[in-house]
Simulated assay, not measured.
Amino acid sequence: MQGTTRRVAVSVAVALVCLSVVGPALGAAGQAHSGGQPSIDGGGAIANAQAPPGFQSAVDPDAVVLRAAVRDDGTAAWTVAFRVRLDDENATAAFESVQDDVEANETAFTEQFATGMKRTVASAEDRTGREMALENVTVTASKERLPQEYGVLTYRFTWTNFAAADGDRLRIGDSLSGFFLDSESSLVLAWPTGYERQSVTPDPDATGNGSVTWRGPAEFGPNEPRVVVAPGGGSGLPTTLLAGIAVLVVAVAGAGWLYRSRGGGTDAPGESGAATESAAEGAATRGAADDDATGPVDADGTGGAAQVDDGPPEELLSNEERVIRLLEDNGGRIKQQQIAGEFDWTDAKTSQVVGSLRDEDAVETFRIGRENVVALPEESDL
């Protein structure tokens, strides 16, 4: 392995673990544990230096998704998923061979992964001063439709004390200082429910409900990545839900005041008739006004001009949400160039936003001629 492009030791170790482990598995068509040792060149590509006799074809992963879900004690549940698009017979046959090998000898895969990953955890332990451990390493190989068919080799493990618990805050990322992502990889850091993000560096490529995502190629600095989160006030309810409850309370209180002010409350003796008459006149007046506002009543008893809730205004949406809304408004499918024109984005920014949605399986992309097309999963027939 040539390490000239990896300035930080942990980035070399993590890249080796996360990429070389899949090399023999996918590159040797199911002979990952037969003794061939993978190597990584300066650009992060996978090569099998000692291909076994049965080696037929190499299948490089189309995407590598690394996700760390941090608990409130700083321990993280990790998932490393290698996705291979099964778009031809060779790729499908190679991955099915991997499935057979995983089923026949899962331990061979997990032991190889754990050996490299333990070195990474030990390096992070020395640098941060926190006692850490690698636990519960498992592996699965399955086919999934996203909606295209992919072969997915997934490693799961627990990394104790991955993040620093500082009082009621969690400081996430120091275990990965200087981490390197190649162009096919993405890193997701997630935090517990009830916590809110206070700071993040560098700026993520995408934000989700309780997570941030960076996509490669990217090389983090010596103090990156970093995410600081803290409990969000102790209510456990999302801010938007609390705001909705507050609006509802105000509306109910206002309705009660209006009812009482128009005579809906208890009347004094001798005034009930006048109050009732006044209330009836008010109701009739309001009914006429309502008819004028909503138009004629349909046969089903509903107003003919009922208002439609179009959701939150455009300026309150994230870039990803704006793309999803645009897709929904255009039948679930649109050319990528049209997205750039609609929002006056550069091609690079458009590709970044679409890539984030694709990583989250929110959209699918494909080509028609020379055009890139973006589609909602349920609208794609690929």
Rank of each mutant, 00 (worst) to 15 (best):
M1H: 13
Q2S: 14
R7C: 02
V10D: 09
A13F: 14
A15Y: 12
C18V: 06
S20W: 01
V21T: 15
G23H: 08
L26T: 14
A28K: 01
S34I: 01
G36N: 07
P38D: 04
I40E: 10
I40Q: 12
G44H: 08
A45L: 13
A49H: 05
A49Y: 08
Q50P: 00
G54K: 11
F55H: 12
F55A: 15
F55P: 01
A58T: 12
V59C: 12
D60E: 14
A63L: 07
V64K: 01
A69G: 02
D72F: 03
G74A: 08
T75P: 06
T75H: 04
A76R: 03
V80F: 07
A81W: 00
N90P: 00
T92N: 12
F95G: 02
F95D: 07
D101C: 02
V102A: 08
E103N: 13
A104T: 07
N105L: 02
A108G: 15
Q112N: 12
G116K: 06
K118Q: 13
T120E: 13
A122L: 08
D126F: 03
E131N: 03
M132Y: 01
V137Q: 03
V139R: 01
T140C: 07
P147C: 11
P147K: 01
Q148E: 10
T154W: 03
W159F: 12
G167N: 04
I172Q: 14
G173N: 11
G178A: 06
G178D: 05
F179M: 09
D182H: 14
S183Y: 12
S183F: 05
L189R: 05
P192S: 07
G194M: 09
G194L: 10
R197W: 00
V200F: 09
T201I: 00
D203C: 01
P204T: 02
D205F: 07
A206L: 06
A206D: 11
T207L: 07
G208C: 08
G210W: 05
T213I: 09
A218T: 00
E219K: 14
E219I: 10
E219N: 11
G221I: 06
V227H: 13
G234K: 11
L242K: 05
V247P: 04
V249F: 08
V250L: 15
A255V: 08
G256Q: 13
W257T: 14
W257D: 08
L258Y: 05
Y259P: 04
Y259G: 10
R260K: 02
R260G: 10
S261T: 06
R262K: 04
G263T: 04
A274W: 05
A279K: 09
A284D: 13
D292F: 12
G295I: 03
A299P: 00
T302I: 00
A306S: 11
D309P: 03
P313H: 04
E320I: 02
V323K: 13
V323S: 03
I324L: 15
L326R: 11
G332V: 01
Q337D: 11
Q337E: 11
W345I: 00
D347N: 07
K349S: 08
S351D: 08
V353H: 10
R358M: 05
E360H: 14
V374T: 12
E379S: 15
L382W: 00
